[in-house]
């Protein structure tokens, strides 16, 4: 068994590519036939400062872990990510000083408040019996995992309906002291996948559209596969069918 993966992403309409605050990992499709493959997406909260780098640290921390996905292991990953962010922030502040751009008064409250992001991670585990392969996933916030088999949506995690999107998702903070409530809402799930299955990891704007289309009886995965991503997102935003947000879709086909 092997997997083929690709990721499409776009910043908000009107923003530069460098202002994209979602994150995904790995950046390139994994090679090799066997092993434990991990994928993650994260949505950095635009209202906070430095959420993009925090999202980046979270997806890497998940994908570089090798322990089975459980609530306990996920908490450990998030804790280590927060420590990695602390180190990153120190270096960032030093760099700002070196470049003659010290932190200004209007940045201080945002830096003090910390960065916030969602996390969705998928692990395809080796060694399952028969034709199938076990998968495990962890989710905190409103990024979504979908599994499509034979043109049918068979898994929708953690959001089930388009109406579940509140616009105020649970978010992970870079400050571990603020994560008690969020961590209580951490969700893990698992299942089996077969050759031909496709997984999609999505951030909220595109996931909400995906679920809405499915509720209308549509097959949004077909639309996604058949369209130029940039054209599709541009059109959906124009027609008011997708919120103008950073969008990320990682698709993983089990071969």
């Amino acid at each position: 068994m092997r997997v083929e993966s690709k990721t499409h992403w776009l910043p908000k309409r009107g923003n530069k590519l460098s202002e994209y605050e979602d994150a995904f990992y790995p950046r390139e499709a994994p090679r090799g036939r066997e092993g434990c493959w991990r994928f993650a997406v994260s949505d950095g909260a635009s209202e906070a400062m430095l959420s993009g780098p925090w999202a980046e640290i979270l997806v890497k921390a998940f994908c570089r872990s090798r322990v089975p996905v459980t609530k306990t292991s996920a908490r450990g990953i998030i804790g280590r990510a927060a420590m990695a962010y602390e180190a990153w922030l120190k270096e960032y502040l030093r760099r700002r000083e070196r470049e003659g751009r010290p932190v200004q008064w209007y940045e201080e409250p945002g830096l003090e408040a910390g960065a916030f992001a969602t996390l969705l991670g998928l692990s395809l585990v080796s060694g399952a019996s028969g034709d199938g392969r076990r998968w495990e996933a962890v989710c905190l916030g409103d990024s979504c995992l979908f599994q499509v088999r034979k043109n049918r949506l068979i898994t929708s995690f953690a959001m089930k309906r388009s109406s579940d999107f509140s616009g105020r998702p649970v978010l992970l903070s870079t400050n571990p002291g603020k994560n008690r409530v969020a961590l209580a809402k951490l969700k893990v799930t698992s299942g089996t996948c077969l050759p031909g299955d496709v997984f999609y990891l999505m951030t909220d704007a595109v996931a909400a559209w995906f679920l809405r289309e499915h509720e209308r009886g549509g097959t949004p995965w077909v639309t996604l596969e058949a369209s130029d991503f940039q054209d599709l997102v541009g059109r959906l935003r124009q027609e008011g069918l997708m919120r103008n947000d950073d969008v990320t879709v990682t698709s993983i086909r089990v071969v």
């Binding site: 202002e19 209202e47 400062m49 209007y106 940045e107």
Partner: peptide
């Protein structure tokens, strides 16, 4: 005015 500037502040500036 201070709060408005803070709300509009991102890493690359206001």
């Amino acid at each position: 005015l201070q709060n408005l500037a803070i709300k509009c502040a991102k890493a690359e500036g206001v």
